[in-house]
Design a protein around this nucleic acid. Structure first.
Lengths: 110, 110
DNA sequence: TCTATTAATCGTAATATTGCAATAAACAAA
DNA sequence: TTTGTTTATTGCAATATTACGATTAATAGA
């Protein structure tokens, strides 16, 4: 039925999945990498850099903004985007905790 | 049109997105957390633990197996699943490198 | 052999995602 | 005010994902 049954999972599991989902598209990965790389706000050149149509980029930016990972500031006719450092750090902690689970070397059966 | 234009992104960007996508569903997060928690192979009790139908769990397991994050061993009529440690570590390195990008505190505009 | 158990596969319905053309909105500058 | 520039929104088509009933396959045990 195409609909995720999020109600049967914990808040933490849903949160991890929500963050992961937004990284599940290479355009959004590329946008974030660019924002980190140029080390300042980006005003408008994302469309030419990524290579997708302007409405498509705008949609991807919206998803990143909804999760709070980036923020945009209006500068005249253009909008400047940058990483939201606090929220990124919070997300990073949650994701790394998930990735960093560890288990002892004993009691392995495969 | 519902199809990701992966050809315009780098191999690394596509790899990050592929790993992230598999974590983008809470059932798969829950499966992996359970495999880490019980610290040994799981033979069949995943359906009752997660709370989705057996074909649905089987489908999620298949996606995790396709990416190499888990492996299954046949034990009679049941199959035992566990984390593939080597591949998990490889994935972890790739994902943490992405999450851990950093940028200097200077030259910020927002 | 027959039956029960377990997991995979098939088929299908419902919903979500991706991408873009067309358009709108907001503002700067002439 | 008009024109150009930039970004957001709308609407839609194509494809992907999620979920599960029905079925199949494989094996253990009676």
């Amino acid at each position: 039925m195409g609909i995720t049954k999020s109600e049967i999972f914990t808040l933490q599991q849903n949160e991890i999945a929500t963050f992961a989902k937004v990284f599940g598209h290479p355009a959004r990965v590329a946008i974030l990498q660019h924002l980190f790389k140029i080390n300042t706000c980006v005003c408008g050149d994302l469309v030419s850099i990524i290579g997708l149509a302007q409405p498509t980029i705008s949609q991807h930016l919206k998803e990143l903004k909804n999760l709070g990972l980036i923020k945009g500031t209006i500068e005249g006719t253009s909008v400047c985007y940058c990483i939201d450092k606090d929220n990124w750090l919070n997300m990073k902690t949650i994701m790394i905790t998930f990735l960093d689970q560890d288990y002892s070397e004993t009691d392995q059966c495969c």
